[in-house]
C-alpha cells in the first residue's frame, strides 16, 4: 500500500450531555453507577482534580460552545479544553479552566492547535468583546508555562495558595491580550 503517510486528522467536537456522561441526578434513573462520559473520563485522567457538577453544567452553556471542545486525533477523543467568560477589573476576559491532551498524544502540536483555536475564537468574539485570555499554571509545571509563553502569554504574577489541596499550592497567572490581528492568525500547527 502507498507509503506516503497521511497527515493525522485533528478535529474539535462540541460538548453535549451525551459525551459528557451522566450527571449525578440521572444516575439513579437508570441502573448504572458509571458517570464517566468521554469528557469526564479525560478530565479524571488528565487533571489531579475532581471537578464539581457545577463545572460540568457550566461548560454545556450554548454561549460557550466554541470555547469548550473535545479534541479528536485520527477520530479518537484524546483531549479537551474548557473556558469561561469572566469580568475582571471592568473588562471581559476569557479564562481557560482546563486544557489537556492524553500523554501519548503530546508534542504533536495538538495543544498549540487548541490554543490557536481559542485565541482566534476569542478575538472574533462579540458581545461581549473579550480583552484578554488568562489562566493558571501550577508552579511545579514549568513546561506548561513555557508552552503558553511561546504562544504569546505573559506572566502577571504568582497566586499564592491558589490550590487548596494540591502541593505546591501556588500558581502562576498567565495572560495574553487579545488583538484584532489574532483573528486572521494562520494556523500555527
Amino acid at each position: 500500500m502507498s507509503s506516503t503517510r497521511l497527515p493525522p486528522r485533528v478535529s474539535f467536537a462540541s460538548l453535549t450531555p451525551n459525551n459528557l456522561g451522566n450527571c449525578q441526578k440521572n444516575v439513579h434513573k437508570i441502573q448504572t453507577h458509571l458517570a464517566t462520559g468521554t469528557v469526564r473520563k479525560l478530565n479524571s485522567v488528565l487533571f489531579p482534580i475532581k471537578y464539581s457538577e457545577k463545572f460540568y453544567n457550566d461548560i454545556l452553556q450554548p454561549e460557550l460552545e466554541d470555547f469548550c471542545k473535545l479534541v479528536y486525533y485520527n477520530d479518537v477523543p484524546v483531549g479537551t479544553f474548557c473556558c469561561r467568560i469572566e469580568t475582571s477589573g471592568g473588562q471581559m476576559k476569557l479564562y481557560v479552566m482546563t486544557m489537556g491532551v492524553l500523554a501519548p498524544y503530546r508534542s504533536r502540536g495538538l495543544g498549540s492547535q487548541c490554543l490557536d483555536h481559542i485565541i482566534r475564537t476569542a478575538a472574533a468574539h462579540q458581545n461581549p468583546h473579550l480583552s484578554a485570555i488568562f489562566l493558571h499554571v501550577q508552579i511545579s509545571n514549568p513546561a506548561a508555562k513555557t508552552f503558553y509563553e511561546r504562544n504569546g502569554f505573559k506572566e502577571l504574577g504568582v497566586f499564592e495558595n491558589y490550590y487548596k489541596k494540591l502541593v505546591p499550592h501556588d500558581a502562576w497567572i498567565l495572560e495574553k491580550e487579545v488583538t484584532a490581528g489574532d483573528v486572521g492568525e494562520i494556523d500555527a500547527a
Binding site: 441502573q31 453507577h33 482534580i49 475532581k50 463545572f55 490550590y163
Partner: peptide, 16 residues
Amino acid sequence: FAPPVDPPEANGDAER
C-alpha cells in the same frame, strides 16, 4: 453496577 475505582480524590472542587 458498582462505581469504578476512582483515582484518589484530590479536591472536592475545581480550583477556580
